[in-house]
Amino acid sequence: MSTASTTPVIQAAELSRWYGIVMGLNNISFDIGPGLTGLVGPNGAGKSTLIKIITGQLRPSDGELTVFGMQPWNNPDVLREIGFCPEDDALPDRLRARTWLRGLAMLSGIAPSAAPDHVDAILDRVKLERVHWGKPLGQFSKGMRQRVKLAQALLHHPRLLVLDEPMNGLDPMGRQDIQRILKQLAVEGTTVLISSHILHELEALCPEILILNWGRVIASGSQLALQRRLQGTEANLHIRCSDPLRFTRVLFEADLLLGFDSTDAGGDEGGLDLRVKDPRRFSETLVDLLTDNDIALHELRSRDRSLQDIFEKMTE
């Protein structure tokens, strides 16, 4: 995932973690560089296990994982560089938001005199309304609790921020707020790793992704690169042309067509959803095929643009 010009923040080499006989992570290796990275995978893929290892909550069974060059397990030197927003609802209900965060700020080494202002600034940053600051956390809605969890992760100005399902329970406005904050952090130089099952949000937020399935890394890199890689074998296209039936026959004869579906009935005149193989040959021969067969092309676009597509193809 890293490029030659960036130093990896997180590096895993032959990393494994077992729970008894159950394999959580199976001999995975990857690098994560600076910026925003999305961690994607179905339930049981090993996302939470990986996050726990990165944040020093779990010890690897085998292999090695380093964050900023050091192993995070029970290592305060690394942990002071990491902010962690867990998926669990890990807030003490009886404490007030401001009081709890002040305690955590002091736990992060901030002087008692500086902690209140610092906490107020962070609460403003996560856009928790001031009226709620003095209320017990038990009275907070799910969305407010998510903001408090994010606030605690930001308290000590971490260089790496790890978020496990940070958008859970947030309304659309809340999601936008969090996305804006995360983008801002990335601009400031913080490495952000986000695990989420809301793929279209990760798609908009994270240029880099890491896909896990069955405890293994099945893909990692930029969304763009993964898309190109997938297109090496097949591509999903939508076209609109003057003679859709003839065009499908031509593609079939040229051994380029894997499947098609007419969208003509849905009001899309001359519309076709195509699944073609060998996209490179397709694009090289398309103009010839159209001119030779006297077919006018009105529209051509890829249907393979979403992270959802990448995810589905990688995990199928």
Partner: peptide
């Protein structure tokens, strides 16, 4: 409260 998850992620 599972707050120990958060405490143990601190330094």
């Amino acid at each position: 409260s599972r707050a120990i998850t958060i405490y143990s992620s601190k330094a």
